[in-house]
Write a protein that binds this DNA or RNA. Structure first.
Lengths: 109, 109
DNA sequence: TGCTTATGTGACAATATACTCATATAGTAA
DNA sequence: TTACTATATGAGTATATTGTCACATAAGCA
């Protein structure tokens, strides 16, 4: 791949990773596993202001992680690329392995 | 899971996602697929200052994505949880699907 | 029409992140 | 010891991100 194209790909990959890299946005993705939801229900589920959630949602739509459709007054959001969820399986492994390390550390004290 | 524990998990997952969510750090991970490397070689490969790369590396170590060991003067960094790499497969899918959308858009103009 | 609800957005302040430079530290070798 | 190399880090500036408030927009209904 050309050097510039590679840089561009890294930037695009980073954009997607950034779109996920926030506790509220992860909570949103977790909630959306149950299927498409409107902003008001998402805001309630994650315990944050609607306007704030709306911004987080548009970041994720811009990155291509979510898609949305209008349904009357509501806008329904859904996970566009379910393989994103595999990522959480992976980082849960990272967290577990760190937790085990800490446990060993504690026992050695 | 308790509500607080859930919040903690989301925060921890976000920390790991953040540790990946930067073009330079993605370039580093890409380079480290070839095996462990020292800071100077990583800096050269990704085309960035050593001090800057050193900071990026410590962020990824703190998040549990990389591990490192001293080898004489050098510090060798390596990917600690290879499943992280699957994530790139996933987001490449996202990028391809968006590229296809844009192509269709272009053809409709 | 006016009223209500759901969502999006401009503007701002607060905070976090990234990069650079200079300097510190640690290891190697003469 | 001194000189050299690799890495890490403090301090500063620049930039990006986040959350909140107020307001705008859009859709439904009386």
């Amino acid at each position: 791949m050309a050097k510039n194209a590679q840089q561009l790909l890294y930037a695009r990959q980073a954009q997607i990773a950034k779109a996920i890299a926030h506790p509220v946005r992860i909570a949103v993705l977790d909630f959306l596993q149950s299927g498409e939801q409107c902003v008001c229900d998402i805001a309630e589920a994650v315990g944050s202001e609607r306007s704030n959630v709306s911004r987080h949602l548009s970041v994720m739509v811009a990155a291509g992680v979510l898609s949305c459709r209008k349904d009357g007054l509501k806008v329904m959001y859904t996970i566009k690329t379910p393989c994103i969820l595999q990522f959480f399986g992976c980082i849960t492994k990272v967290i577990k392995s760190q937790a085990r390390e800490n446990e060993q550390l504690l026992q050695a004290m």
